[in-house]
């Protein structure tokens, strides 16, 4: 009896420790709290009514639908959680970079849980120092700049907003290229090799602080705003100077 009691007490004491030590187990509980309403139990995905609502969910918005998470791997979970893209406040909205309320440990646990759902890609390890800036620039203008703009300031596509990349870490850039979040195309290793990705990441890192030889960059949003500045600020200034010079000559 005494022995049985001791074992039970030990088991009770050890259980939370064991749960904390096993991230998959911890992730399972977090999944039930934040993700299950849209992605369904076991990450099977859902196209119908969810079973519950997460912390950010309010009563009226509980008609969540979400894709299956089986086989998306640690790569996708890490990307969506660290950027604050998930949990999504409203179903149907474009995921945006926002405040991350999960702790580092919770993100790791959720990532481990999602990775355990099925075989999927592991976290990428981009090495920008291996890439070359010029190659990265060429690849970026060819593959990315159409939407993200040439110095990665973000832009527009009908129905969606390609985000600026100023806060994207090298790992997040590498992850996004492989996932294609929201309406972004997905680029496989066959299309953009890891080596090419290193160059792209290096260019994105450069584009966060580009070398503005011309002086004021006006947000790097392209030649049309630059033209507007020329016309409405530069020209006004020139006319003002002309008026001042003319007045002085009149007096003389």
């Amino acid at each position: 009896m005494k022995r049985a009691f001791l074992i039970t007490a030990l088991a009770v004491l050890c259980f939370p420790l064991a749960a904390a030590a096993d991230p998959v187990q911890q992730g399972y509980h977090l999944y039930g709290r934040y993700c299950i309403s849209c992605h369904a139990a076991g990450g099977k995905g859902s196209a119908g009514r969810p079973v519950g609502a997460g912390r950010l969910r309010t009563q009226g918005q509980d008609t969540g639908i979400g894709p299956s998470l089986i086989g998306v791997g640690a790569l996708a979970a890490d990307f969506y959680l660290r950027t604050g893209y998930m949990p999504l406040p409203h179903v149907g909205m474009q995921p945006r970079r926002r405040h991350v309320f999960l702790t580092e440990g919770e993100i790791k646990a959720l990532t481990a849980y999602v990775a355990s759902l099925g075989p999927g890609p592991a976290l990428p390890r981009p090495r920008p120092e291996r890439g070359t800036l010029t190659h990265g620039y060429h690849l970026f203008t060819e593959r990315c700049a159409g939407c993200h703009q040439v110095v990665a300031e973000g832009g527009y596509v009908t129905g969606a907003l390609p985000p600026p990349l100023e806060n994207a870490t090298p790992t997040q850039v590498a992850e996004a290229v492989r996932i294609g979040p929201y309406v972004m195309p997905t680029f496989s290793k066959k299309d953009i090799s890891d080596r090419e990705l290193d160059s792209i990441v290096r260019y994105v890192e450069y584009a966060k602080h580009p070398d503005d030889r011309g002086g004021w960059a006006i947000g790097h949003i392209g030649p049309i705003p630059e033209g507007f500045v020329t016309w409405f600020i530069g020209m006004t200034a020139l006319v003002a100077v002309c008026v001042v010079i003319g007045k002085r000559l009149q007096r003389g």
Binding site: A47, Y156, V157, Y182, V183, M184, P185, T186
Partner: peptide, 24 residues
């Protein structure tokens, strides 16, 4: 520009977009 939704049910449909004037 190619709009390629990851999850069709609640994202915009696939579309080819011209970057000049957003013809879709």
């Amino acid at each position: 520009l190619y709009r390629a939704p990851l999850f069709q049910p609640d994202e915009p449909t696939p579309a080819l977009v011209c970057p000049c004037h957003y013809s879709t």
